[in-house]
Design a protein around this nucleic acid. Structure first.
Lengths: 196, 196
DNA sequence: GATCGTAGGTTAACGGCGTAAACCTTACAC
DNA sequence: GTGTAAGGTTTACGCCGTTAACCTACGATC
């Protein structure tokens, strides 16, 4: 498999505390359950898609009753949202690592980001399907969309390339949107069918 | 609303016979039920998405029991597939009408196709979500994808533009894939969030 | 003209789903 | 020692897709 190691969208580095949870920084056993739920949900989602991710299945995996999950998440939507969010929060890190060795300001770096985006999408296609299909029902602002982190990485590289004179100076947001559209369109098309 | 009239993805022109059905060209009452099912399913899908499209809801709309649908469609997937397929079969017609007045071989014609694609997608977003998200589970060949018709229209215009010297001569399929990716990526992004 | 097969339904039922409500335990604060 | 709350459980409701069995009208066959 090319690129950096496959990410683990759930487990946080020990540095950052759990973002949401009944105990901000207290009994570690408390958030242990929440972590177990998120892990089970992530595995089910990755394996069998959203259909396989049922409250009963998640609970069964960790030896709880289905309704116990409601102590940690308001409902299934909230759970799925957290799983996807967690996954996409790692996308920024993934993209950064993918282009760490490409010189800033180079076109090569921008291109590598595109490749990395596609690779990340194909390795996490269940996440992508949810974020760009199911959840699109009530569209959020772009700033709330998980994956915005990745957008920022791309924008940074584009701005650098403009400053270096590698890319013609234009509205960077417009350029980024265009580049994003190309790779994202390719990803979506490749997921839906096999062109060629 | 700009562009040609909104299409009706279900009702066929009287010329073409029903593609599938118990009677290829016989009793018209027979396929009347099938048509009613497809229409009800289309309406439910357009209004409330895939969640709203349940066998019981479809049947209720036309005064039948849910299990009656199974005389016409093997299961829910087959029904949804037919609805989407029917919708996308009209996309080719929609695109053709949208650029009917643009001169062949012009860049303007290609650009107009892109605009029309986006407009069609936003007006039929439930179809798009299904085809490019849910159904992507087991990707088909591009030739079986509904919407391939639209692809062919775009390819035709690109080839004409290349022959006219408006577009640099390259592998047309590669160019078409690129153009398709741009507009499709934009559509998908716009559906998921509100950039800007 | 009786009989039979089949098209086009029906009702009943099964297992699974999300989730609300009520209840039970354990632990800890006062 | 008692209240309170966290973290569960059991039960139940109303949906869902789908199967199985049955009914009924009708057109073809002998």
């Amino acid at each position: 498999m090319p690129g950096p190691d496959t990410i683990d969208p759930i487990s946080d580095s020990p540095a950052d505390p759990p973002a949401i949870g009944p105990e901000p920084a207290g009994d570690p056993v408390a958030s242990e359950t929440e972590r177990a739920i998120l892990e089970a949900a992530r595995d089910l989602l990755a394996d069998g898609g959203l259909d396989a991710l049922s409250m009963r299945a998640v609970a069964g995996r960790i030896g709880l009753s289905a309704t116990a999950i409601y102590h940690w998440f308001q409902n299934k939507d909230a759970l799925v949202d957290r799983v996807v969010q967690h996954g996409f929060e790692r996308s920024e890190e993934y993209l950064r690592r993918s282009v760490a060795d490409r010189p800033r300001g180079s076109l090569e770096r921008v291109a590598a980001l595109g490749e990395a985006y596609i690779r990340f999408a194909l390795e996490n296609r269940q996440y992508f399907k949810i974020i760009f299909a199911i959840q699109g029902e009530h569209p959020r602002s772009i700033h709330d969309v998980p994956g915005h982190g990745g957008y920022l990485v791309l924008r940074e590289s584009v701005v650098e390339a403009m400053e270096a004179g590698t890319i013609r100076r234009e509205d960077p947001d417009l350029v980024v949107l265009f580049l994003w559209a190309v790779v994202h369109g390719l990803v979506t098309i490749f997921m839906a069918c096999d062109p060629g």
